[in-house]
Nucleic acid binder design. Structure first.
Length: 885
RNA sequence: GGGCGCCUAGCUCAGCUGGUUAGAGCGACUCGCUUACACCGAGUAGGUCAGGGGUUCGAAUCCCUUGGCGCCCACCA
């Protein structure tokens, strides 16, 4: 027999192993079934499972398990990410901790990469194990890695093609330079932090200019103002003048540009094109000279004269001091609030620099999509706009369009070593771009690597390529796609499930890259989940360990099923949600409830000497009202759950299942079955519930299944999804059962209202109007559940001390043998009378309203009439009873 | 500056295209170890649905407006 409480820790690993060994996760590319594919967003190969992964895995596992049970060929491709900057940083830090001063210099490129690869290899097992812990039913035989050779081939090839198409170019552009990490980072990797800094106004020739960064001003020789600013109307574009400046006289030129806000400061500024994005753009427009002031270590260059070699933070006050001595400082505003760019990768201050970088041109119209020539930007817009790709919830489509509108060329080169190296080779003035190094001696490969999102952008399809074929360079990409059965069968993928925070980083770029490279959309639906926050709504962050909930701790304590439910139910898509232990505990209780309900059914079978495995079907003859009502309700449940899952309404479906199991199945049906059980119906209902619940809580359901399944049935994970059978729908049975439930509830209420001791069993008389034949069948159960002595169905209320309750069509009278407290009964009746009078008034008001009668739907009007009649009937009875007291 | 959300019981949240006296879970309170489950059962209390205005026979739901909170994008020297 099953133990009293369900123990996840004794069950989960065993069940997972069982699934894996039976090949339940494996998808077949040759199958004729309709494909259903998910590409798992790859966690960092060196990472630790956190709640973000946990929600992602839970959601995707629900989609996949449901699809699989529905008879689709369900493939979930797992994988890990090499996480370029993040991983390189970790390893460098570790090496430093081991006593190395500058690992890059000491080891050199090849050796450091080896070290990192070694580290990744060692630590990758951790995340794999943790993904399994969540119950993820992904196809491990197809596990992929973003830095594997097959992916490298595709990355190189797509790079080369884009280069040939003129979509990838190399240019001097202003980039976000992180002096601490010594690399470029993308716009999306910048974290803006608000800070207060002094804002200085200096005299610069005839103008006053404002700046918060005087240390960059050494090379400034342009003053810029708005063309319509009347204060400066007498200066013309191109006028020159001399100005005394930090290190002596400079010759400056006037530039008129609309980028200047006349209302800010004095409406005049000098520009530093090498170290400021906006300034760079002004310089581009007017063809101005630009000069580097700060080097890549964050120190001033010789142009700074006496300040050369100084770190910028140190130079700032000294420069101000010098200008002040020269009498050029007009004023200082100490409370200037501005946003400072910091690197989200390493936390250092980002210093814009001009560097030779590789870019993807998103505006060039050279790509063919659906017979039209478009830019990458236009395609990205088109596929979502046309509905080829659906974004859920749809408000994120707006955000996506907004992001595309603001999209600039994408800088894809990074000055780190861990990643896909830029497939470009140089020899003197020659440049070669290709999949493999060029023939001949003297070629040097570009030292940069590619942005990690460049390779992740190909994730949905590169992971479906035949890995052996992919490294054969004589096979063209078109051939490769054609000859990869997985790609042919499973791409485009069905749904991409990920956090809304990487909609621009990743989702948009997958769309860009996949439409370009393989001419298909990467996925049909994008389902975005929200962030999981702490109970008081804060972000969980590593810097605040108390705020963190470790999913593995929660699994150890409450079980995977409970954790999964607590993250899915009550979470609406795209919205942040809060998680705390009590919530998980609540779902642990639910899992246990399900366990015990099953245990009870098995106990029933045991005492009746029935082996559940022998029972396949139930007999449709001789079903009680309760059985019929249950079967009917079950059909509705199947319909609702199936429809809800098809529309990705996971939270709603979860709640529906929760309340069905607990409130209906356990609290009513199982209670009623204590009088007289129909084992076959019990088993049928339980099996159906297990199937419906399996995607949400796979472990308990599979474990229970082994005890209750029909003898020849497969594992639950491989079972067929239930179909609703109209034949079992029986509204009458349901209504009749409701009457029984109402009677029991009324009797219980009378007992507590009059404080009838539990050990006394009063007699109850029901006065029934109309036909209530079905009641007779249920009498025994009513007697037992309501703990009454005898139940009679009569035509008149009994004489004597009686407490009464009035249902629609039925009066319940309880003989109290002197136990009744008249004052108490009177008080209760008065209270009920009050609420009924109020209700009747509301109804009457409605029905007296002509417009309501004319315009509201007819069914609604007649329903309201019926309700009023019932209410008035009840009031009449109460009045009579009150009169007799 | 541009955009997108949110404000419903003490707490966390459902309430879809307007239609019963607004729901759930947790918490609180009162009973209860009744042939699965105290990780339980039966009950009770608790809300002018952020404020104001409008449309409508009818608004938590649609429109306008005020206030508070949050997020995304852009970034101004």
């Amino acid at each position: 027999m099953l133990p009293k409480a369900y123990s996840p820790s004794d069950t989960e690993d065993r069940i997972y192993q069982l699934w894996e060994e039976t090949g339940a996760f494996h998808a077949d590319a040759k199958s004729k079934k309709e494909p259903f594919t998910i590409s798992m967003p790859p966690p960092n190969a060196t990472g630790q499972l956190h709640l973000g992964h946990a929600v992602m895995l839970a959601l995707e596992d629900i989609f996949i398990r449901h699809a699989r049970m529905q008879g689709k060929e369900a493939l979930w491709v797992p994988g890990t990410d090499h996480a370029a900057i993040a991983t390189e940083n970790v390893v460098i830090r570790l090496l430093k901790e081991q006593g190395m001063k500058d690992p890059r210099k000491e080891l050199g490129r090849e050796k450091l990469i080896e070290k990192i690869a070694e580290f990744v290899e060692q630590s990758r097992g951790t995340i794999r194990g943790q993904v399994r812990k969540m119950g993820s039913s992904c196809d491990w035989e197809r596990e992929r890695y973003t830095l594997e050779p097959a992916l490298n081939r595709v990355v190189n090839e797509v790079f080369a093609r884009m280069y040939k198409d003129g979509l990838i170019y190399r240019g001097h552009r202003i980039v976000n330079w992180d002096p601490k990490l010594q690399t470029t980072i993308s716009d999306d990797e910048i974290a803006w932090k608000e800070e207060t800094a002094p804002f200085y106004t200096f005299q610069y020739g005839p103008f006053q200019i404002g700046t918060s960064r005087p240390e960059t001003k050494f090379g400034d020789k342009y003053v810029v103002m708005h063309p319509d600013d009347e204060r400066y109307a007498k200066y013309k574009n191109g006028d020159t003048f001399e100005a005394e400046w930090i290190n002596g006289l400079v010759r400056a030129t006037v530039i008129k540009d609309t980028a200047v806000d006349p209302a800010f400061g004095t409406g005049v500024m000098t520009i530093t094109p090498w170290h400021d994005t906006a300034d760079f753009e002004i310089a581009e427009r007017h063809g101005l000279e630009r000069e580097q002031i700060i080097d890549f270590q964050g120190k001033l260059l010789p142009v700074a004269g006496e300040f050369a070699g100084m770190p910028i933070e140190k130079a700032r006050p000294l420069v101000v001091e010098k200008l002040k001595e020269k009498g050029l400082l007009v004023k200082t505003d100490e409370n200037y609030l501005h946003n400072k760019a910091t690197s989200s990768r390493g936390g250092g201050t980002v210093e814009p620099q001009i560097k030779l970088q590789w870019f993807i041109d998103v505006k060039k119209e050279v790509v063919t999509w659906k017979g039209k020539i478009m830019s990458l930007k236009q395609i990205m817009h088109e596929v979502v706009h046309s509905g080829d790709i659906t974004i859920l919830p749809d408000r994120f489509a707006k955000q996506y369009f907004h992001w595309i509108d603001n999209l600039r060329d994408w800088c894809i080169s990074r000055q780190i070593w861990w990643g896909h190296r830029v497939p470009v080779w140089y020899k003197a003035d020659e440049t070669y771009v290709g999949i493999t190094p060029p023939e001949g001696a003297g070629w040097q490969q570009d030292t940069d690597t590619l942005d990690t999102w460049f390779s992740s952008a190909m994730w949905t399809w590169s992971t479906l390529l035949d890995p052996k074929l992919a490294v054969d360079h004589s096979v063209t990409l078109e051939e490769l796609l054609k000859r990869s059965p997985d790609f042919q069968k499973f791409h485009p993928t069905t749904v991409m499930e990920t956090g809304y925070d990487i909609l621009p980083f990743w989702v948009a770029r997958m769309i860009l890259m996949t439409t370009y490279a393989v001419g298909q959309i990467p996925f049909e639906t994008v389902y975005l989940h929200g962030l999981i926050r702490t109970r008081d709504g804060r972000k969980m962050s590593k810097s605040d360990p108390d705020s963190m909930i470790d999913p593995l701790d929660m699994i150890a304590k409450y079980g995977t099923d409970a954790l999964r439910l607590s993250m899915i139910v009550g979470q609406s898509p795209g919205a942040d949600s809060r998680l705390y232990e009590e919530k998980i505990g609540g779902y642990r209780n639910f899992v246990n409830k399900l366990w015990n309900a099953s245990r009870f059914i098995l106990l029933q079978c045991e005492s009746a000497e029935i082996d559940p495995h022998d029972i396949e079907l139930f007999d449709q003859e001789g079903l009680t009202v309760a059985d019929q009502a249950l079967l009917s309700a079950l059909q509705d449940l199947v319909t609702d759950v199936t429809a809800g899952l098809a529309e990705y309404r996971l939270s709603e479906v979860g709640e529906r299942l929760y309340s069905f199991v607990w409130d209906y199945f356990c609290d009513w049906y199982l209670e009623l079955s204590k009088g007289e059980a129909n084992y076959a119906v019990l088993l049928h209902a339980l099996r159906t519930l297990l199937k419906l619940l399996h995607p949400y809580c796979p472990f308990v359901t599979e474990e229970i299944w082994t005890h209750v399944k029909p003898e020849h049935a497969k594992l639950l994970i491989q079972e067929e999804w239930p179909l609703a059978d109209e034949a079992f729908k029986n509204k009458d049975a349901f209504d009749q059962l409701q009457v029984v439930i109402d009677i029991i509830t009324a009797i219980r209420k009378l007992r507590t209202d009059h404080q009838v001791p539990l050990d006394s069993h009063p007699e109850v008389v029901l006065v029934v109007q109309g036909k209530q034949d079905s009641l007779v069948d249920q009498v025994e159960q009513i007697v037992r559940m309501a703990r009454i002595g005898a139940l009679k169905i009569g035509s008149k209320p009994p004489q004597g001390e009686v407490a009464s309750a009035f249902l629609s069509g039925i009066e319940v009278h309880m003989l109290l043998e002197g136990l009744v407290d008249k004052d108490k009964e009177k008080a209760n009746l008065l209270k009920e009378q009050e609420s009924l009078v109020a209700y009747a008034q509301v109804l009457r008001g409605k029905l007296e309203n002509k417009q309501f009668i004319e315009r509201a739907p007819h069914q609604l009007v007649s329903a309201e009439r019926e309700k009023l009649a019932e209410t008035e009937e009840k009031l009449k009875k109460i009045g009579e009873r009150l009169g007799s007291l």
